[in-house]
Amino acid sequence: MRRAGPMRRGRGAALRRTALQAGAVAALLLGALIGGAPGAGAVEPDEMLDDPALEERAREVSADLRCVVCQNESIDESNADMARDMRILVRDRLLAGDSNEDVKQYLVDRYGDFVLLRPPFKPTTWLLWLGPALILAGGGIAAWSFYRRRAAEAPAVPAALSDREQARLRALLDDADGGTGDTDRADGAGDMDRAGPGGRA
């Protein structure tokens, strides 16, 4: 019992430390979220252009270009050496008088459409762009036809029992055992379902 004291205190300290660590991680994540908002990037001061309007355009173009080394970052966000070279190239092209589209085309000519983070809309990418709409439409049609068929199939008023069903029902009611000998297998489960409410009506 005497040893439980320090032990508990140790556990308390550990808990407090864990809570502190969790708090620090949360703060970091929050910071990353806020810091990750537009404005942040990997652009180093020495890369920036003097003309703010041109620099703004460079940022815009860079955000659409994939870093070919890291693959899922734009060159604007990536710290890779290759991304830096590409950022500088983008700025050089803009300084040389290229339009934003010209700069992108320059890189597409060398790296293919892969270098664009937003795939262009063209025959080979139709399925990619229209796929989700097609799947949604397909699902919609399937659901519509399913409900329409179900509405058509379900009769408003259950059909009356046939003589045969009446006889069977009577036999079942008379015979508490459930009657194995005289049940007519040909009736099937579907008929059995309808027998319930029909019999009561």
Binding site: V68, M82, D85, M86, I88, L89, L107, R110, Y111
Partner: peptide
């Protein structure tokens, strides 16, 4: 120039 890789579309 650090340009040759981009000119050739080299990624590494």
């Amino acid at each position: 120039t650090n340009r040759i890789a981009i000119e050739f579309g080299v990624t590494g």
